[in-house]
Design a binder for these strands. Structure first.
Length: 162
DNA sequence: GCCAACGTTGGC
DNA sequence: GCCAACGTTGGC
């Protein structure tokens, strides 16, 4: 199982919107690197949901992949904001995945506080100038962030088998 | 609103 | 294939 991070602008689609919708298709990715990562996503992979262009920008919760990459139909629609005439049904250029809401953190983890974490210094999200909207998250990075989230939400990391 | 750090486009 | 111009992302 692999871990990922998806960026979204809360003014456009927030973790609360995802919580309400329960499930959504992650459309509109128009960057090759991001697309390639989406194509590597597998059923059951978990993703952090990140609010970009927010005050503060923050990791806000968790979702999981419930459908692997398939053509992003919004690229075919001339009236869509993310229309791309170079993408066609017969030869799709852009893909999307379906994600399902898992949980929202009791307290969001703001970007500045993540920067303070020693173990996250190599994280793609924290790289200067990083704009990748779909990115892999290392296993150790995932754990560190989960632990941070648990610190503000006792019980969320409780495991019945422990 | 500013601007750094990209990615893309298109002339040559 | 180079690279300048341009557009976008996203923190600040």
């Amino acid at each position: 199982m692999n871990y990922w991070l998806l960026k979204t602008e809360p003014g456009c689609f927030s973790i609360d919107d995802l919580a309400r919708a329960k499930k959504t298709f992650w459309d509109g990715v128009r960057n090759y690197q991001a697309r390639n990562f989406m194509q590597e996503m597998r059923l059951g992979d978990e993703v952090f949901v990140y609010h970009s262009n927010a005050d503060p920008p923050a990791v806000v919760g968790i979702a999981k992949i419930v459908r692997e990459a398939y053509p992003d139909h919004t690229a075919f629609d001339p009236s869509d904001k993310h229309y791309d005439p170079a993408s066609s049904v017969g030869n799709p250029r852009w893909y999307m995945v379906d994600v399902q809401f898992v949980r929202k953190f009791k307290m969001e983890l703001p970007l500045p506080s993540l920067r303070e974490q020693r173990g996250l210094s190599k994280m793609e999200l924290l790289r200067k100038g990083s704009r990748l909207s779909v990115q892999p998250v290392g296993r150790s990075e995932w754990k560190i962030i989960l632990k941070l989230a648990a610190k503000h939400d006792p019980g969320s990391d409780r495991c019945p088998n422990d």
